[in-house]
């Protein structure tokens, strides 16, 4: 067993109504301490109203080397963007 504490990814919601955003990572022995550490490391300046932590090992990430097949095909499909519609002014910001 490793003597290092596991790595946790920290997500903080800045205000009610906003999404949780990834703010960084830290080490902690368990989930409860990860929340406490996140509180101490990432909310010192009144940044948050809610904290999520997830053990980094539990995150499955896409591989940077797959970026061609994963993302490039969508580049040439302009018809997926609703840019051909004229939005009436009354509709406001979409």
């Amino acid at each position: 067993m490793s003597k290092e504490w596991p790595l946790w990814e920290v997500f903080i919601r800045g205000q009610h109504g906003l999404n949780h955003r990834h703010v960084g990572s830290l080490h902690a022995p368990d989930a409860e301490m990860a929340i406490k550490n996140a509180r101490d490391v990432y909310t010192r300046r009144n940044e948050g109203v809610s904290i999520w932590v997830v053990e980094a090992a539990h995150i499955t990430a896409s591989s940077p080397s797959d970026k061609g097949p994963l993302y490039e095909p969508s580049e040439s499909k302009v018809y997926r963007h609703p840019t051909f519609f004229d939005i009436p002014d009354e509709a406001g910001h979409m």
């Binding site: 080490h27 101490d40 490391v41």
Partner: peptide
């Protein structure tokens, strides 16, 4: 002993 505790103690 670890960065996280360092910041927590300072707080």
């Amino acid at each position: 002993p670890v960065l996280e505790e360092d910041i927590a103690l300072a707080n």
